[in-house]
């Protein structure tokens, strides 16, 4: 197992009119080749921010304050602008939230694939490039005729597939898909997930799937990362996460999932998500945590591996000996 992605202490701040919002506060993450990670957390917890920061696509008023994103041994944060342009799509790919509108309405699908390849590869012949595009379309179960079509001629699921096809054109090492299924019906959701699953196996990349639907996502990923207020609360395997979540916030999330036993009873999480402008001191979850201790209010718990192998950021757990 080789490490393809290593995120170290990634920090993003949005400088808004009402103050500084620390949207990403020292995130650490490691992914091996072929690994699939699900990133979950409530709205506003910083999932998209993390993905955009990894692409170096945070826009004003946001700023990447520090950290490293190492893909295949190269720190993206250290690249020049020009090198970063080249790394996008060829090293790391982002399939955006809202893929419904991610295709240019006035350009043919083919042209939007060809320009992506041309931006990274000026040597290949026109026919070779077109052939690559056709193959990419076929690998996501679309016909070759889609190459000549416009976005408005495609269904939502087909557009999402086109975005995936574009994402894998240059066989990147890491694919990030931000809520790839949020606007799709249940049947199409499954098909799109299966497509992502298959192309991942084809090109052997690591995948980060961002989503709200834990149930759907966990059928396709190996690991789950739970994000809370710009920090990772817990990263563990799907099995561990569902059978034995460690972090109190992860426990609350899991028990709020509908199941046969708790049918009809809704276990919400008491309290409100914190404002990023005035984050609680220490563990940001402490005002809502049923197990809060004195130390939680003052000291930020670091993400560390606990007995059993999960990574948890909580003072309840001693470090693995």
């Amino acid at each position: 197992m080789t490490t393809v992605l290593q995120v170290n202490n990634l920090q993003v701040t949005y400088y808004t009119d009402s103050g500084r919002a620390r949207a990403l506060d020292g995130v650490n993450l490691t992914l091996n080749s072929g690994e699939k990670l699900g990133l979950v957390g409530e709205s506003g917890s910083g999932k998209s921010t993390m993905a955009l920061a990894m692409m170096r696509m945070i826009k004003l008023p946001g700023r990447i304050e520090g950290g490293q994103v190492i893909v295949d041994g190269n720190d993206l944060m250290a690249l020049s602008e020009e090198e970063m342009l080249n790394a996008r799509l060829s090293e790391i790919t982002y399939i955006p939230q809202g893929a419904m509108n991610s295709l240019n309405p006035v350009m043919r699908i083919g042209a939007q694939m060809v320009d992506a390849i041309k931006a990274h590869d000026s040597k290949s012949s026109k026919s070779a490039i077109e052939e690559r595009c056709m193959e990419a379309l076929e690998s996501v179960d679309l016909g070759r005729n889609v190459f000549r079509m416009f976005a408005h001629e495609l269904s939502g699921g087909m557009k999402q597939r086109v975005c995936i096809a574009i994402g894998i054109l240059l066989k990147p090492s890491v694919i990030i898909a931000d809520e790839p299924t949020s606007a799709l019906d249940v049947v199409t959701q499954r098909q799109v997930m299966e497509t992502i699953d298959r192309v991942q196996k084809d090109i052997g990349c690591a995948v980060i799937l961002i989503g709200h639907d834990m149930g759907l996502m966990c059928q396709f990923v190996d690991k789950v990362a739970v994000m809370y207020a710009g920090r990772l609360a817990e990263v563990s395997t799907v099995r561990q996460m569902f059978s034995d979540p460690k972090h109190p916030y992860a426990q609350a999330l899991i028990s709020s999932l509908p199941s046969l036993e708790n049918k009809g009873v809704f276990h919400g999480i008491p309290g409100l998500a914190p404002s990023l402008l005035r984050l609680p001191s220490g563990c940001t979850f402490h005002p809502r945590c049923p197990h809060v201790m004195e130390v939680c209010k003052t000291t930020v718990p670091a993400l560390r591996t606990v007995p059993g192998g999960a990574q948890v950021a909580c003072h309840l757990y001693p470090e693995k000996a």
Binding site: A99, S102, N104, P105, D115, A119
Partner: peptide
């Protein structure tokens, strides 16, 4: 979204 996705594609 399509302008932003174009940036993600690494276009100039």
């Amino acid at each position: 979204d399509y302008v932003i996705f174009a940036e993600h594609k690494g276009l100039h």
